[in-house]
Amino acid sequence: MNEMFRDKIDISLTVNGEPVEGRVPAGQHLVDFLRGALGLTGAHASCEHGVCGACTIKVNGEAVRGCLMLAAQADGADIWTVEGLSDQGTIKDLQDAFVARNALQCGFCTPGMLVAIDELLGKEGVPSRAEIREHLSGNYCRCTGYEAIVDAVETVARARAQKGAA
């Protein structure tokens, strides 16, 4: 084992609003730190190389692949996973719309999908269906197809815009 790998790195960060400290191997992926060391269950590893989006989490406000970022890089970061976003209540309308529209089947891709959508909906304006599809093309779903997901996102985007205008 080379020295670089053997090194353990001390990190301190915020995960879902809670301060966390850890000593992590240099080669540890962030998603494995979250589900291994912290025992979280929402971010899932699927492709393990950044194409499928199942491990998408929020790092300093941006949607990031948990399998492409090392835990060591997260020192000082503010991280949110679907569990934290759920507790916070900020994506409740989106989660409700996912259930109501059946925008999920097996649900394995869903947490990552929700985080990616949260990023999209944080931008100005109501995205078109084409823009929704474009933004979410890095989040694979193998069960549901994408129609219901686009429906759910569109519904929430419109409802939020209306609420904002009112």
Partner: peptide, 22 residues
């Protein structure tokens, strides 16, 4: 009828095999 397991899945709480830490 919306799926009854939906709320567990959209909140990251559905226990898939690899994350059954408990």
């Amino acid at each position: 009828t919306p799926r009854i397991d939906g709320p567990l899945k959209v909140s990251g709480q559905a226990p898939y095999a690899y994350e059954r830490h408990d």
